[in-house]
Amino acid sequence: MKFIIAIIKPFKLDEVKEALAQIGAEGMTVTEVKGFGRQKGHTEIYRGSEYTVDFLPKVKLEIAVADELAGKVVEAIVGSAKTGKIGDGKVFVVPLETAVRIRTGESGEQAV
């Protein structure tokens, strides 16, 4: 099993969700987050007062999937979240030891 964490632009969330539904990824967790990568922050002026925006708003997706689906999921996220401009985000894939569905007690791939 794989645990996929994707950081994307907030306005791309709907497109990514659609793309994931089409390839059969069932379920995800979405969090509003702030951060920076290569895009870095920038300086803004509000009413004559300067300030630095270090952290930009992003959306974080967390998806647990079976090994064979992981590649497709990454592909779907990259395909749908891409604008080609700086700040599009990143996808991380990490191995997942186990998963348990609380209601039934199933574990392993049946549970994701």
């Binding site: 803004e44 509000y46 007062s49 300067e50 300030y51 630095t52 925006v53």
Partner: peptide, 9 residues
């Protein structure tokens, strides 16, 4: 504190 650095909007 933070004037010129933080967002005080």
């Amino acid at each position: 504190i933070g004037f010129g650095r933080d967002n005080l909007a």
